[in-house]
């Protein structure tokens, strides 16, 4: 019986393909793409203010609401944070990625790779929590500044209007540190991959032609690592744009995109506005991906 079924199927590769592909495709088309389409539709509906009910009629009014000064401020603030975090992560990630790719022994490379990717897969929330402990007013950073008798420097940083706050754990600068921390592995891995692909012969040729190590680094290694940096920046940028955990935990009362989405769908039940808000990161990311493709980042993924 089984053999007959098997033979029957063997002679019909199209049917096998259909059977294999059916379940995952049905799941993704219905559940995932269906939801994304529902989201897009919702962003063209609007919330009737008196009844608090969503009216399912086509309108661009909800998108219009995005362009109020306070909402534009949310977009700018979030994109600015994403850009700052991306630059910081590229700077912190590069030495470690370079060391792993070019200098570590094969054994050490495996271990370092695991050490970098462990935090990438896990404990996202706990790793945010760690900074709540570290940056608290009574926490380790303040203690460190006081022990060195330079607490005036910390106070000075916190008094800067747009990045400071009452303590590091309630300020944009604290958020910046936490963001840079949690997304760092996403930057290290693509840079390391890009650096590992730099052919040895190229470096030897550069040396043979009389370039000093610093010149080889600047003229050969950096340009070839750049697509890796861009690939990593896709993650750091996108993840920062969509996150509401960090601003909610470490930020002040000034909203980020993720928080705005969370707040609008939650307390006020304004799903249309929340949906329109998420189109912000989606559009920014699509534009970013187009630029990244031009810069050759997809080969480094």
């Amino acid at each position: 019986m089984l053999t007959r079924v098997s033979t029957y199927l063997y002679q019909r590769p199209r049917l096998i393909l259909f059977l294999l592909l059916g379940p995952p495709m049905i799941y993704f088309l219905v559940v995932y793409l269906g939801s994304l389409i529902a989201l897009l539709l919702n962003s063209f509906y609007y919330l009737e203010e008196f009844t608090g009910l969503v009216v399912r009629e086509f309108t661009l009014e909800t998108y219009g609401e995005l362009f109020t000064p306070s909402n534009l401020g949310i977009f700018l603030r979030t994109a600015g944070m994403a850009a700052a975090v991306t630059v910081a992560d590229a700077l912190i990630a590069f030495p470690l990625a370079y060391y792993i790719a070019k200098f570590a022994s094969p054994r050490a490379r495996t271990w370092l790779y695991i050490a970098v990717t462990l935090p990438l897969w896990s404990s996202y929330l706990v790793r945010v929590y760690a900074w709540k402990l570290i940056l608290a007013k009574e926490g380790i950073v303040s203690w460190f500044f006081e022990a060195l008798r330079i607490d005036f420097a910390l106070d000075w940083i916190l008094s800067i209007p747009s990045i400071g706050g009452s303590s590091l754990s309630l300020s944009p600068i604290g958020m910046f540190i936490a963001f840079a921390y949690i997304w760092l592995p996403y930057m290290i891995v693509p840079i390391q991959t890009a650096l590992e692909r730099v052919p040895k012969s190229l470096l030897e040729a550069s040396g043979d032609l009389g370039a000093k190590p610093a010149q080889t680094f600047r003229k050969i290694i950096l340009p070839l690592a750049f697509p890796g940096v861009v690939a990593g920046s896709i993650f750091t940028f996108s993840l920062t744009l969509g996150d509401f955990i960090v601003p909610q935990s470490l930020g002040n009362s000034r909203y980020f995109i993720g928080q705005a989405v969370y707040a609008h769908q939650g307390t006020s039940g304004n799903i249309p506005l929340a949906a329109a808000f998420t189109m912000g990161p989606v559009v920014i990311m699509l534009a970013y991906l187009l630029i990244a493709r031009k810069l050759g980042a997809f080969d480094a993924l």
Binding site: Y32, S35, L39, G242, G258, V261, Q265, A274, T278, V282
Partner: peptide
Amino acid sequence: MLVLPIALPGIVTGIALRSA
């Protein structure tokens, strides 16, 4: 399509599923 849910920010997947 399979990679989209982790490539797009989590709130997109989240709010999309919620509204659906």
